[in-house]
Each structure stands twice: as structure tokens, then as C-alpha cells.
Design a protein around this nucleic acid. Structure first.
Length: 464
RNA sequence: GGCCCUAUCGUCUAGUGGUUAGGACAUUAGAUUCUCAUUCUAAUAACCGGGGUUCGACUCCCCGUGGGGCUGCCA
């Protein structure tokens, strides 16, 4: 039984990188019919915040990445305490009384000598009895893990064989005290107890892996399989951060990028199918995804491609009725756009948020200069042509306004095919008030006879 | 500084010893069109460098170089 986890720390709004890791982990679980576990890593009390945990939870829900089990590390302190006691009693972990100042000096010395920064091991030989007494006397301490001085290797699912040297890592601090365990330790205890089979996470954890494997071994637990995903990069190839633009999932959602497009985009960032398809639903991905095909190198977050994908979903993939419910949050509540209105503007949008501006011509009074009505230099044709069109529309019955095709039909007798622009440009501007807009037939079928007549009359009035 | 990871068009990538190095985004041009967008067509554009191995390297090995991550009593 495959059991995988997403283990974010709630120290900021859900990061787009966490969303990508979540997607890959979720896909891995789904295609192996395994369990997806969400574990909030909130052992750092200063930096962890409830609101960030909520951001992660709602982000995952927005993307439709539902989890099967949920844990919060802050609720598991006793478990970690017991495990700490166990390793201390087995002398695999020892209390260290070195002060921060002592360690700073060691670090500076190591850097000056151009070697790895490794703990000297000064406290490693203090007898358990003495250590116990000093702790009871209230002396500040940390707990250090005796790192085996040997090669520690593993077969990474995306990178292949990776090897570190334990003697270059040194005895690491795994807890600030018995009740304040640290990341590398709690991860191992949880992954072991939760029977995680595959640890899939960002490459920024690659160098934590040998430390964790050593701790697994100390407990006698079998380490899981590891797979490290490449990082998402800023345009300058640094780790994607605030500096390079938006990094919070919610910011993308608020701008009107759709979950489907985001998932599609994130999947293609460092993963590629066997063929050349670009459009993938979550269901497609469950079928096609394979961790062996994920890229090793980091990839730059390409906004232009995201825009293109989002546009594909808006204009061709998501149905208009579905779109209608999704745009509600982006437009004033008294706007009730029809399907025809949405259809007329949807190919012109990069994001859903842009629909407010696009739909304004249907819900706000038109404001434009009369000169805009003239097609190129054909000023004299404007009024007569609008009047000709108006006369046809005036006597047409409602069935002619049903679709842009029927509108085109209705006007086919009056619009001269050899000088279409002299008819359609003034018509379109009188209906939209804009240089750039949907076509006149589309607008007419969207607003209906009465409003069409009124707008054309307004246009003629502007020129008289 | 140390350790580790990594390297194909501007970007995302296909490619697993013999290919006209393929696709997508972006860009440019053209077609369609009243405008814009959509759609369609085409074009420009890449194997980081140097050594090996081999009949033959983008592909395998080594050394550089570039980029990145980690180097916390953060995760």
C-alpha cells in the first residue's frame, strides 16, 4: 500500500511550489491507489501561524487535491518526547551544552580553514549521569544525534543514486529540548509511524535526506523511498520567491487563473508526457503521470505559457455555464451577464479577472467620441449607413436576434459586401463605444432589439 | 569556503550512440476579419567548453565553467 505525504510548514501563505509538490504527491497516490496524507509541520512555534495552515488547506481544496489523513505535528509532542528519550537511552543522541557563542566560534574557524562546518563533538563524551544532572539543574541544552561517520547513499526516484558522507555532516541538533523537537527528527518519527512509503518533496530537502536516513537507521526503521522534485525558479534562475513576482497560490486564484489551468501548467513544469500533448485534466494526469519522467533541472515559472493555458481553458475548454458561476466573484453583483455576452468576450481574456472590463460595454453607459464612429476616411457614409441598418432592425422580429448568425442573416441585405467596413465599423462602435470589442453581430444578439435600436439612435444623435 | 544537485531554441521540454535535433509558449510574417481576439499557415531560434571512449557522440566517462540547493537551537 502506497502512502505518501505533503508536509508543508505553515510559515507563509501556500506557496506555488508547495502546490506543485502537492499535485505530484497526490498524483502519485492516486495512480497507485494509495493514501495521500497532509501533515502540517508546525514545530516552529514562532513562525507557524494558524492563518497559514488555513491558507494551505484552502489552497489544496481549491485545487481539488483532497487528502485521506490529516496530522498536525504540534499535537504530537509526547510521541516525539518518547522517541527522543529512547534514542538518548540508547546513547544515539546526547545532550549538548555548548552555547551559541561557542558554536559561532567553531563555525568561523571551519570557514577560515575552508572545510565543512562540523560540530566538534565536545559534549559527546559527557557521561549520561552528569548530563542528566546538568539538565535537572536547569542548564540550557540541545539534543544532538550521533551521525555515523560513513557514506550514506540512497536511490532517488528522480535523480538516481545520491551519496553523502556522514563524517562531513557531523552530530546535528535534533531537538532544542525534549519537548521541542526539530524538523529532521520529527519528519523521521512521523514518516516511520505513518508508514510513509515514498517521500516526494522539493530538491531543497535533498541534503536533509542523509540525515534523516541515519535517524531511520538509528531507530531500526526502514527508510522510505525518496524522490526530489526540481525547484521552480524566478526568471533569474534563483529559487522562486517574492522577489520574482507572485508566489502564493491564492494570488493566482484571485487574479483569475483557474485551478485546471494552474494544475496543467504546474504538471508540465518539470514533467512531460511521452507524446506532445499540452492539455491535461487531472484525470489525464493520473493516467499519464510518472515520476520517472520528471525533469532533474529546475524550471523557470513562465507566466506567458500560464496565460496561454488559462486562455485555452477560458475560451475552449470550460463550458460557458460553468464560466458563468466562476466569474461571479470578479464582477459587480448586479451584473447578470447572459451566455451570449460571455461567449462574445471570452476569447479575449487571459484571466477571469479581466472579464469585468470586457463585459462593461453591456452594463455601463457607453462613453465615446462621435469621431470614433467613422470608418477610416469614410465620414459621409456613417450616418446614412447606420440609418439603413436601423430601418432593417426596426422592422425585424425577435427571432432575428437569437444568435449572431441570425443577426448576420437579417443584415445581409443592407450590408454591402464590397464595403463592409463602412457599415460594420460604425455599427460596432455605436454598440460598444470602443475601438476594440466583440463583433457587432455578437453584441446585437447579446443585447437584443430594444437596446440595439437605442444605441444606434444615440450614435446618430452624436453626429447631428 | 564545504557538501550535494544540475546543464538541448529567450522559456517549458522531446530525445537514452547513427534524427533534416521534434513539439509547445513567446516573437515575426502571412491568411481569415469592420477592430481586437480566436482560428489557420509559415519563419527565426538550441545541444555550455575541453578532453576522452567509439567507426560514429546531444546522448557514455572525466575535467572545467555556469546555475541552483543546503551548510540554523527554520522547515
Amino acid at each position: 500500500m502506497v502512502r505518501v505525504r505533503l508536509a508543508p510548514s505553515p510559515t507563509g501563505a501556500m506557496h506555488i511550489g508547495t502546490a506543485r509538490a502537492g499535485l505530484f504527491v497526490w498524483l502519485f497516490a492516486k495512480q497507485h491507489e494509495g493514501k495521500f496524507i497532509l501533515r502540517i509541520e508546525d514545530t516552529d512555534k514562532e513562525r507557524s501561524k494558524k492563518e497559514y495552515e488555513e491558507s494551505i488547506i484552502s489552497g489544496l481544496r481549491d485545487l481539488g487535491l483532497e487528502w485521506d489523513e490529516f496530522y498536525r505535528q504540534s499535537e504530537r509532542t509526547e510521541i516525539y518526547h518518547e522517541h527522543l528519550v529512547r534514542l538518548v537511552s540508547e546513547n544515539k543522541v546526547y545532550p549538548c551544552f555548548c552555547s551559541k557563542e561557542d558554536l559561532d566560534i567553531e563555525r568561523a574557524a571551519a570557514e577560515a580553514e575552508k572545510r565543512s562546518v562540523i560540530y566538534s563533538g565536545r559534549c559527546s563524551n559527557i557521561s549520561p549521569e552528569e548530563a542528566k544532572k546538568r539538565i535537572e539543574d536547569g542548564e540550557p541544552y540541545t539534543l544532538r544525534f550521533r551521525m555515523p561517520k560513513e557514506k550514506i547513499g540512497f536511490d532517488d526516484m528522480v535523480r538516481g543514486r545520491v551519496e553523502y558522507d556522514g563524517s562531513l555532516i557531523g552530530d546535528i541538533v535534533i531537538a532544542k529540548s525534549y519537548d521541542e523537537p526539530l524538523y529532521n527528527f520529527v519528519v523521521v518519527v512521523d514518516d516511520a509511524l505513518m508508514e510513509i512509503t515514498h517521500v516526494i518533496r522539493g530538491e531543497d530537502h535533498l541534503s536533509n535526506t542523509p540525515k534523516q536516513i541515519a535517524i531511520f537507521n538509528a531507530f531500526g526503521y526502514e527508510p522510505p523511498n525518496f524522490g526530489h522534485l526540481p525547484l521552480i525558479l524566478n526568471a533569474d534562475r534563483s529559487k522562486m520567491s517574492k522577489r520574482g513576482g507572485d508566489t502564493a497560490l491564492v494570488e493566482f486564484l484571485e487574479k483569475g487563473y483557474m485551478p485546471e489551468a494552474l494544475i496543467n501548467f504546474l504538471a508540465l513544469l518539470s514533467w512531460h508526457p511521452k507524446d506532445d500533448r499540452e492539455i491535461f485534466s487531472k484525470e489525464d494526469l493520473i493516467k499519464e503521470f510518472s515520476i520517472e519522467r520528471v525533469q532533474k533541472g529546475g524550471s523557470i515559472f513562465d507566466y506567458a505559457k500560464l496565460n496561454w493555458l488559462n486562455r485555452q481553458y477560458i475560451s475552449h475548454i470550460i463550458s460557458t455555464p460553468d464560466l458563468m458561476t466562476r466569474i461571479e466573484r470578479f464582477i459587480p453583483s448586479d451584473w447578470k451577464p447572459t451566455a451570449a455576452m460571455i461567449d462574445s468576450v471570452k476569447t479575449r481574456l487571459d484571466t477571469l479577472a479581466e472579464i469585468k472590463e470586457a463585459l462593461a460595454l453591456y452594463f455601463e453607459p457607453l462613453s465615446y467620441e462621435g469621431d470614433l464612429l467613422h470608418f477610416k476616411d469614410k465620414k459621409d457614409a456613417t450616418i446614412p449607413n447606420l440609418e439603413k441598418i436601423l430601418s432593417v432592425i426596426d422592422i425585424a422580429d425577435d427571432s432575428s436576434f437569437l444568435s449572431s448568425e441570425s443577426v448576420a442573416d437579417m443584415l445581409s441585405g443592407v450590408v454591402d459586401p464590397d464595403s463592409k467596413g463602412e457599415y460594420l465599423w460604425p455599427l460596432r462602435v455605436s454598440l460598444s463605444g470602443r475601438k476594440i470589442s466583440p463583433g457587432p453581430y455578437e453584441i446585437i444578439s447579446a443585447i437584443g432589439k430594444k437596446e440595439t435600436v437605442s444605441r444606434i439612435k444615440d450614435a446618430i444623435a452624436k453626429l447631428k
